[in-house]
């Protein structure tokens, strides 16, 4: 996989960005891509976009962790891109709104589903990384 962020290779380039800039750059990417997902898949009945970004982002973060990514790659991909791509605030507000408009079962399914599918995605990430030489 893309283990080599060119800027993370010591000595290869003199460009050595601050960790906060790496995280922030990843965060900007994650936020813009999440916005795009919400524009494409928004639904009145069920908060699909939030579920999608949370499961996908957890999977990608899992891949980075289990592949033994370097610290700066984890900052860019994990804390930055996946951290901003996934969201807890939208999840919690949407769950409360589902509950208060009477869809209590859907609210519970949303709360359990986000966690169960994200954990499953992390498990799949672990399986993929440990099976194949990346």
């Amino acid at each position: 996989m893309t283990s080599a962020l060119a800027l993370a290779v010591p000595g290869a380039v003199t460009f050595d960005p601050e960790p906060a800039h790496i995280v922030g750059t990843g965060g900007a990417i994650g936020a813009v891509v999440r916005h795009w997902v919400y524009l494409q898949f928004s639904s009145e009945r069920f908060p699909w976009p939030t579920l999608a970004v949370n499961v996908l982002g957890s999977f990608l973060f899992g891949v980075a962790v289990f592949a033994g990514a370097s610290e700066s790659t984890l900052q860019l991909v994990g804390i930055g891109i996946c951290g901003a791509f996934t969201t807890f605030s939208s999840f919690s507000v949407e769950t409360v709104q589902l509950y208060e408009r009477g869809d209590r079962l859907i609210a519970a399914a949303n709360a359990v589903g986000n966690l169960a599918l994200s954990l499953a995605a992390i498990g799949v990430a672990w399986g993929i990384v440990s099976m194949g030489p990346l």
Binding site: G30, A31, N54, S58, F61, T86, T87, F88, S118
Partner: peptide, 13 residues
């Protein structure tokens, strides 16, 4: 939405 995060929480779990 970028301040909060689900993926790190899921990884921690």
């Amino acid at each position: 939405s970028s301040l909060t995060t689900y993926s790190t929480f899921a990884i921690q779990s």
